[in-house]
Amino acid sequence: MTTAREVMHAGVECLGLDDTLVTAAKRMAELDVGAMPVCGDDDRLRGIITDRDIVVKTIAKDKNPSQVKASELIGETPVWFVEPNTDVDEVLHNMVEHKIRRLPVLDNERLVGIISQADLAAKLPEDKVGELVEAISTTSH
């Protein structure tokens, strides 16, 4: 059995609730990622902000990203997650069912990693990854 821990990207950085979207965008650019988790002062995951969120929910609505905080973009949708020992088939099922491209990995309510389509593509058989990409690409935002 392959587990979430085996396919996840460890060492994930969090944005703070009070970080602005300019800070979020700069960190995404520096890390070459399209999404960042948002954590509270207690290091617990509160949400995820994507580059698309910044564009669609802020810039396209004529809001100033230097004045919008990360906390203002999270909380609208539930944050789906798995635990480190979750079987990768369940990881795939969750990503397809919830139409998400990234899945946080929590251990004792603390963020320990994140699983993206790229992580799965690098570590799983082609047929499993193809099913995920097809399901998400045809219905995801």
Rank of each mutant, 00 (worst) to 15 (best):
V56K: 09
L124T: 12
G130F: 07
L31M: 15
T50K: 05
E83G: 14
P125T: 09
T139P: 00
H93D: 00
A135D: 08
R110G: 01
I74C: 00
A24Q: 07
S137A: 10
H9G: 03
N64T: 10
S71Q: 13
S66W: 03
H93K: 14
D41V: 00
A122I: 03
G11W: 13
D53T: 06
E134W: 08
V55A: 14
E90Q: 15
V33H: 05
G34P: 04
P125G: 10
D32S: 11
I48W: 03
D42C: 02
I59N: 12
V96P: 01
G11Q: 12
I115Q: 10
L103Q: 02
I100D: 02
E90W: 00
T86I: 03
K61C: 07
A60D: 13
I115L: 14
L73F: 02
P84R: 11
I100C: 04
M1P: 13
E90C: 09
Q67Y: 09
D107M: 11
I114P: 07
I115T: 04
L106I: 10
V91G: 02
E97S: 02
T77P: 06
D42E: 10
D19G: 01
S116Q: 07
V22M: 03
T3L: 15
I114V: 15
L111T: 11
T58W: 00
R46N: 06
A35W: 08
T2H: 11
I49P: 04
D127S: 15
